[in-house]
Design a protein around this nucleic acid. Structure first.
Lengths: 344, 344
DNA sequence: TTTATTTTCGGAAACGTTTCCGAAATTCAA
DNA sequence: TTGAATTTCGGAAACGTTTCCGAAAATAAA
């Protein structure tokens, strides 16, 4: 596996290394025939330029780092496909890292990417990140020193960087309103961790939809649940035990909605009929589960594309940087789980 | 964003660059006090060694490339977590690339990784790869030239590299036998693309299980379906149209099983009761769908770990290389979809 | 105190490129 | 044919490290 260098090629052809370099970089100051000959024998010798030497010279890696909290659910992989779609065309390569929802791993990942001299980072924060302000401080100082960073989905308002987010408020509002239009009045919200900005936004959308329709609002309607299936199970079980049952539930995301559904079905409740459910953040599961789950779809691919474009723009720009927040639109997929049944 | 180099540190301290380098690499020939002082001022100046310069010298990147055909389903992400679990501890960094099930993209990915001078590659092949022999030839020549490569899940027998696979034959056999024990006789198999080795193995397991129980085998029982939900839908719809209904279906994977179930449910068939279904390759979906799907679980995390360990071993080894095939074990999760109902 | 040994450090080469500068070779105009 | 302009190429520096070699300084032994 001895590597062939530019010198070997030059020696073979009795020319200088600079000429060989010129041949490979298509410079103007080289004769066509010599270039062709060099390229031919280089190929024959199996030569390919050493990327590290180039990098050492150029001082930029043409690599972009992506940090996501997890990629077991399809959400982040789909976003990454969007990112890849844009960056690949622009000649960038992706380094994908996942933090396992742990702030310490996240910080490590960021530092690894820095060490690899990536030209920019696209990141969605961990649950823990807003608690462990260390990471936020670190990101903040990176941004302030001019390092290109784009946040998406799980963002922090403290960091002055480009952000790509979903209009959680609006779609939480619509989802809640959908339940109201179906005739439900006693509606509970299973919320996400309040440290995450999107959780807060969805809570606000929920509240304002109730207010608009003159349904009285109280803290008793909102249950801080979490984002996992087992979170939905736990909270719904608690409601059953307390005999505190709503007519409908608007859940912060699909897994928590699905968890709630599992408990309900196990206890003989009919969905819909006895209780209606709406989820959030479309996943493959929503349309496969029984009954199919009404849910808000996020434009995952587009989120990725937008984040990538913003990053490229920032890398290219020489002017002063004004952080921008792009809010993307979604769709409410109405399915069986939220229907109003005639029997009701 | 001007980078601080080792020279800057040396100049500030009036010492040579080699001394600073020694301080950072913890060499024996440096006085304790000077080292501490250098480290302190270096930190104060915000110096960190340029990785490219190191790489240029060392000629190895401490990076491992991972190429997967997709990561929308949870299978590959889970394997990657296993890989990461081992390699991170060993001080390696992961470059994750996905091929979108396209052979051309796959080849690009491999070349990109080569260009990045990764120390090894862990790869699962694309559908198309066995058709487009170009990629296989390329991988083969890489392996033969001594480049460390480990294949998993979707492997090719032509490539003389370490392989980590699942005992598809055995578990297809068990899954089929399970249906037979439930009393079903007319069992169909929805197979994967026959170009993939695991498809072939599952077909053989299916056939041999039937033979063992003296059920006559014919090509009429096996339908080349594909790996996606829509493939399962298409083939099941065809069976309905042809009025060629089995008592049970053993599907090559969960999505195709789920596709079949969707069509059946839409047409008023009861699962189980009218027809039983077994899937393969456990996914999150299997236990959430209605009815819960009996399926073979693969040890995804362990697959990743094993692949990573084999690769590390190969990288470290100086001796001649003997390709090894590790076959991992699984589990049959029996759920409602394959039950024999009393009414039958 | 002198010599031998060990510790500590500086200088310089090397890794494989690209690029600047200037020189040689070629082409063009007069 | 001569000089100027242009094309084509070689030499060398630079990118930021690590490491080898040898020298200076400090220590130990005589």
């Amino acid at each position: 596996m001895k590597h062939i260098t530019i010198k070997d090629v030059a020696k073979r052809l009795n020319c200088s290394v600079s000429t060989v370099s010129r041949a490979f970089n298509d410079k103007y100051d080289i004769r066509k025939e010599t270039r062709d000959q060099i390229l031919a024998t280089a190929k024959e010798m199996g030569y390919s330029p050493n990327p590290f030497a180039k990098l050492l010279l150029k001082q930029c890696s043409n690599q972009i780092g992506v940090v996501v909290p997890e990629f077991i659910n399809s959400f982040f992989p789909e976003v990454i496909k969007g990112i890849q779609n844009v960056l690949q065309k622009a000649g960038y390569q992706l380094l994908i890292m996942q933090s396992n929802e742990e702030a310490t791993v996240e910080l490590e990942n960021i530092k690894t990417l820095e060490n690899n001299m990536v030209d920019g980072i696209i990141i969605s924060l961990t649950f823990e990140t807003n608690l462990e302000t260390r990471n936020i401080d670190y990101l903040k100082s990176m941004v302030e020193s001019g390092f290109p960073i784009v946040l998406f989905n799980r963002v922090s308002d403290v960091i002055p960087a480009h952000k790509v987010v979903f209009d959680d408020y609006k779609w939480a509002f619509f989802a809640t309103e959908h339940l109201i239009y179906q005739g439900y009045k006693k509606i509970f919200h299973f919320s996400g961790p309040k440290t995450l900005s999107f959780s807060q936004n969805r809570i606000n959308g929920f509240i304002d939809a109730l207010k608009k329709h003159k349904i009285s609002v109280s803290d008793q309607l909102i249950f801080e649940t979490g984002l996992l299936i087992k979170d939905g199970e736990r909270v719904m079980q608690k409601l059953l035990d307390d005999k505190n049952m709503p007519e409908a539930v608007f859940a912060v995301n699909d897994p928590s909605a699905i968890g709630a559904m599992k408990i309900l079905k196990k206890n003989g409740y009919k969905i819909p009929g006895d209780i209606a459910i709406v989820g959030f953040t479309e996943s493959k599961l929503a349309e496969l589960i029984d009954p199919p789950l009404t849910s808000v779809a996020q434009p995952t691919f587009e989120i990725g594309q937008t984040a990538a474009r913003l990053l490229l723009e920032q890398i290219g720009a020489k002017s002063i940087f004004v952080p921008q927040k792009v809010v993307l639109n979604g769709r409410l997929n109405v399915r069986e789980s939220s229907m109003r049944l005639a029997t009701h």
